[in-house]
Design a protein around this nucleic acid. Sequence first.
RNA 1: GCGCCUGUAGCUCAGCGGAUUAGAGCAUCUGACUUCGGAUCAGAGGGUCGGGGGUUCGAGUCCCUCCAGGCGCGCCA
Length: 586
Amino acid sequence: MTHDPDRHPTPNTQHPTYIPDGPVQVILTMVKDELIRAVESALEDAKKAGDIRIKEMPEVEIDVPRKKEFGDYSTNVAMVLAREIGAPPREIAQRIADRVTEHNGVIDKVQVAGAGFINFYLKPDWYHQVILRIHDQGERYGTSERFIGQSILVEYVSANPNGPITVGSGRGGAIGDVVSNLLEAVGYRVFREYYINDALNSLQMQNFGKSLEVRYLQLLGHDVKMPEDGYQGEYVIQVAKDIVERDGDKYVHLPKEDRIALFTDMGEYAMLELQKADLEDFGIAFDNWYSERTLHESSKVTKCIEQLKERGYAYEKEGAIWLRSTAFGDDKDRTLVRSNGQPTYIAADTAYHADKFERGFNRLLNVWGPHHHGYIARTKAAVAALGYDPNRLDVLIFQVVRLFSGGELVMMSKRRGDLVPLRELVDEVGKDAARFFLLMRSADSSLDFDLELAKQQSSENPVYYVQYAHARISSILRQAEESGVPIPSVSDVDLSLITHPSEIDLVKKLSDWPGEIDRAATAYEPHRLTAYSTDLAALFHVFYRDCRVLGESPELTAARLVLVQAARVVLANVLGMMGISAPEKM
RNA sequence: GCGCCUGUAGCUCAGCGGAUUAGAGCAUCUGACUUCGGAUCAGAGGGUCGGGGGUUCGAGUCCCUCCAGGCGCGCCA
């Protein structure tokens, strides 16, 4: 078994890198920046003229208003300044608005509204720029170079190698995978890693080895009983069967201790293979599988403890060695080495995090399951005790998954819903639906997975709804080509024919994509993508109802084909970012 | 007892560092197909944003407190 840590991060070859070749202007940012500059210039002019008396320039924020009657963008800067100036916000807003237009070419109209908002209406040709850009950038559209030159190691799933990947871990997998995609899209070099909790002294692993050993002996007719806390799962018997089939009874006569050690090893190997396959069929692949055991074997754990002692953050008490994590805000100090001489999980995890930093990553992200929030403080403390800035480590905790079928909570015997094997879920609803549903809620919320809905092939099922939009677009483009209408080149098309409100709404949504990526990536919020994808699909369907593409005048058909093409690009990009297929036919 | 997460429409949930009249899907009711995929679309009803204080010109959003639910608090991992 080879899961030696790869000491040097290598470029990720298994996933597309979203790093663009040349400088990329993010559209949303571009327009926002222009508007910010326009407002700032207006403010400075007003200040010079004595219209507005302020000491320092405020930070100008540009928002997308909730309602489109309020324009394309708006700012609340006048309300922010109201207190300092001591004048009504609307009056200040008017003074700024009067000076804004002369500073910017994309603004069509400026309006003061509400409590003192300045609403901006953009010139229509700005939307044409969006379409041009999407065609120009294709699958790179939406990516940015914001974090170019930075690297991040994302650790996720990291289950014990003693069973199949569960639905709960699957949620972590989907989140980790898509967050990784997002981080790549904003310029990070991303390294995806699975930490194998395979320490030999771990009770879980020993217990697993014993259970496998018992199943093996039972299959060979020996009268041995499973330990009460043993692993009852069917898969343990299957692994034992495989061993009997391959090796027969050759382990029966070994000393019991040796036999258990051997079966722990063989079991782990089998489970890692199983887990890799489970994850692969779920669309997840790692750059590296990092074995906890190797940390002990290479004495990195020992060295790490020595280092902590030297730094004064590890001490001996009652025959054990403790981490002084309270020095960094943890509730209590934590045991690093038990009085029987065996290092704890935390000791290994500390060494592991040190190793991650030593490998040269700028940032670390751990995607952890619901039961690990208590470990954030101690892990950060350990990192800080070793002299690393704990702010370079982020931990994303996600909540439990519950499976529902026909309104009933699914229980597997006595097991919780999130202990159902991921494979069973994927077999039942498919990879695309499984991923979409597991991504659908914010990580902070527990997730109720509706199996019936996920299987449904109707618009009620969001993943079908979104994929249907993509298939529908593909169908239009296909039909255009079949009927001899060539897909025009953007430069040959008169985009000023794109004027219908449904067309404009669609384009505006397309223009949001770079901003959506940026926010979802920097806040580690992959669930935003599911919402964005359904919004985009909905706007396409509205457009489809209102605007015919084929059979209009050649010029209008050409313009709409270009728009439809752009929608397809973005829809495919969103689905691709989520690891979900974008079918041309369904 | 301490810590983390959650509490928004009948249900499942969005609501970004506070801001113009709180949103979506489902469910309910009413509508739309001789033409590009009806696996679609339109309209209607439905909310004291768990309660109470506070900060603010302005709070679902920030602070405090209480209540309810989930999950953690090991010389287990």
